[in-house]
Amino acid sequence: MNHDLDKLPEIYERYPRTPQSLIAVLQDIQKEFHFLPTEALKRTAEELNVPLSKVFSVSTFYNAFSLHPRGEKIIRVCVGTTCHIRGAKQIQEQLENHLKIKAGETTEDKKFTLEVVACVGACAMAPVVAVDETYHGGVTVASCRKLVKKSKKGKKS
């Protein structure tokens, strides 16, 4: 994957160069590259005057950050109690087979990352599959393939 570190200075320009900006900067880097490249962590430590150990500590603490390349879109299958009862397991398996990856992995073309989450707080719509920020309720084994196809095509999922 081409991660163009030239984009970093522009990100640093958006926030005051203080340790307080660390999470905001990391979020923007994550958004830009879909993960936090090692070199970006080192540069961030220098730019914001934060010890590298702290940068690493923060970037491994939050689930929103990843040190390994992730897909452009994150598909999250809810496996909370309600979704579980309504067949989340089958949907997860279907998506795994379809994308040819296991939960937690990223497709080879770096389009999708599949994750399972405990509850997205939309139990009334169970079973729920969230593609980035868009929640899809009442998903079936048949419909989740279409969901992937649709999100692949359109910019908006």
């Binding site: 090692t38 962590l41 010890p51 590298l52 150990s53 702290k54 940068v55 690493f56 500590s57 491994t60 603490f61």
Partner: peptide, 17 residues
């Protein structure tokens, strides 16, 4: 030089990277 890394079950004390 060192910090805690990760969270929950996976938390460890480690140097950066």
């Amino acid at each position: 030089a060192i910090s805690t890394v990760g969270r929950g079950h996976d938390k460890v004390v480690a140097p950066p990277l």
